[in-house]
Amino acid sequence: MRHDSRLSRMLHALVHMDRLAGAATSEMLARMLNTNPVVVRRTMGGLRRHGLVRSEKGHGGGWVLARTLDEISLLDIYRALDEPQLFALGPSVDNPDCLVEQAVNGALDMALVEAKAVLLARLEKVTLGDLGRHFTEKLGALPRQLQP
């Protein structure tokens, strides 16, 4: 099963966008994320609907952050991406009348509900600003000749 990397990819793009002098075009972001500009526009449209980014028209236009990095939590991005599935694990539905399958599914469902709650609470506590500061700290630790 292929995992959904939209959350990490958008976090990556948004932190980079904060460091740009101007707006980021869909084409620029697509090259950065190794994807198609149409995919970027569709995804950024969802972020725009949640008030996280806005698009600027005309020459020099593109996507810009609508709020500061410290005002955007990882949970905000997760929700703006329509809450992609967090876990590859899930209940079996081969024999729904089987009492063993029901017991297994009940145990897995409860564990997954609890794990999701813990993960979402963590995503709510971390902001894009935290990621940006972590990046800046790591960048500063690099030898001068390796810094971009």
Score class of each variant (00 low, 15 high):
Arg48Tyr: 00
Val93Gly: 04
Arg122Asn: 12
Thr35Gln: 02
Val64Ala: 06
Ala121Ile: 04
Leu7Gly: 05
Gln102Cys: 03
Thr35Met: 05
Ser5Thr: 15
Val15Gly: 06
Tyr78Pro: 02
Arg67Gln: 15
Ala24Glu: 09
Met17Glu: 02
Gly132Cys: 11
Leu119Ser: 04
Thr68Asn: 14
Gly51Asn: 09
Ala24His: 02
Val40His: 03
Arg41Pro: 03
Asp130Ala: 08
Pro37Trp: 15
His3Lys: 02
Gly61Arg: 00
Ala115Val: 06
Leu142Lys: 03
Leu128Thr: 02
Val113Ser: 01
Leu99His: 13
Arg6Lys: 01
Leu142Glu: 12
Glu71Asn: 07
Ala117Arg: 14
Asp76Tyr: 02
Arg2Asn: 10
Ser8Gln: 13
Arg41Ser: 15
Leu81Gln: 10
Thr35Asn: 00
Lys57Ala: 15
Val38Phe: 07
Arg31Val: 12
Asp130Thr: 05
Leu89Ser: 01
Leu20Arg: 14
Ala103Thr: 04
Ser8Val: 14
Asp130Pro: 00
Phe135Tyr: 15
Leu33Gly: 05
Leu123Gly: 00
Lys57Gln: 14
Leu108Asn: 02
Val93Glu: 08
Leu86Asp: 09
Tyr78His: 14
Trp63Thr: 07
Ser73Asn: 08
Leu146Asp: 13
Asn105Lys: 09
Ile72Arg: 12
His59Cys: 05
Thr68Gly: 15
Leu7Gln: 11
Met17Ile: 13
Ala107Arg: 13
Asn36Thr: 13
Ser8Thr: 14
Gly45Ala: 10
Ser73Glu: 11
Ala121Ser: 15
Arg9Thr: 07
Leu120Asn: 03
His134Phe: 06
Arg122Ser: 04
Glu27Cys: 00
Arg31Ser: 09
His12Ile: 00
Gly45Cys: 10
Leu112Asn: 01
Ser26Pro: 06
Lys138Trp: 06
Ala115Leu: 14
Leu146Met: 15
Val126Phe: 08
Leu20Val: 09
Phe135Ser: 01
Gly22Glu: 13
Leu74Pro: 05
Thr43Lys: 08
Leu14Ala: 06
Arg54Cys: 04
Gln102Ala: 13
His12Met: 10
Gln85Trp: 04
Leu52Gln: 04
Asp109Thr: 11
Leu119Arg: 05
Lys125Glu: 13
Arg133Trp: 11
His16Ser: 03
Gly61Phe: 06
Arg48Pro: 00
Asp130Tyr: 01
Gly62Met: 09
Leu52Thr: 07
